[in-house]
Amino acid sequence: MRPSDILLGLLLLSPYLFTVYYILSKFTQIDYFTMFSFISLVTLVLSRYSSAILLSLMLVPSLICFGLFVMGIPYPLIGLAAGYIMSFPLYIILGAFHEKKIENIIISYLLSLTLNISILYASGQTTSLTSPDIIINLMVRIPRTIVGGGQLYIPPLVNDVFTILTATSGIALLFIVIRRQEPEFPRSSRELLPLILSAIIILLIAVISRVWMYSYIVIASSMLLLLICVSAILKIVT
């Protein structure tokens, strides 16, 4: 794998990784079951669905937790479920990464983005978090707010960081998709022109619709330029 591919992969996953970091940072005490199930699901997809991983890291712990649930100890099963929910957007995007059809990658990305933002909303409803809170917020409070026409809340700083990371992730997605068709992309600066142009148009839309604060537009533009520069440097180096 080329360094540029690793960089693009990290940029693509950055909003998801940020969401996970944000949720875990809000946990008052570490929930090992949540951690374990999160790692097991990500490991499963990274190991290309190895049956050994499936059996040892997923089926056996799930059966044990279910057994404990039946015996009247529900928290391990809830922790496990919360971990799976947290890792699900990552699972989708990693699973779609090896898809040959680019339209499938794009729809998977958009779907995982929706799930990711739902999880972020679920974590933003309370000051501190536990595993049951994630599930209750996601299953009950958010649907109720959407149906009731209420406003979902994310802390402003978190929102801005997440937005910027999503913007860079979107650009990385298109880089990856284009490179899937054209491994030598970009061969010249002219090939980047449509991408840069659309990024600028989107920024203008963002300005007009006031979805971003002006200071963050500068940051976002810098990120875009940084990305292009890094890509160009990697191209020259490799």
């Binding site: 729809i107 990305y109 958009l110 929706t114 997440f162 999503t166 913007a167 979107g170 298109l174």
Partner: peptide, 30 residues
């Protein structure tokens, strides 16, 4: 479809709104 269902009906977060627009726009330019 994503733009219509998710962006306009479920969430009004800018990322959800702008991500499909960005993809469509880039696609059109290419």
């Amino acid at each position: 479809i994503f733009f219509a269902i998710v962006s306009l009906m479920l969430f009004n977060h800018p990322t959800i709104f702008l991500a499909p627009v960005f993809i469509i726009l880039t696609l059109t330019l290419y």
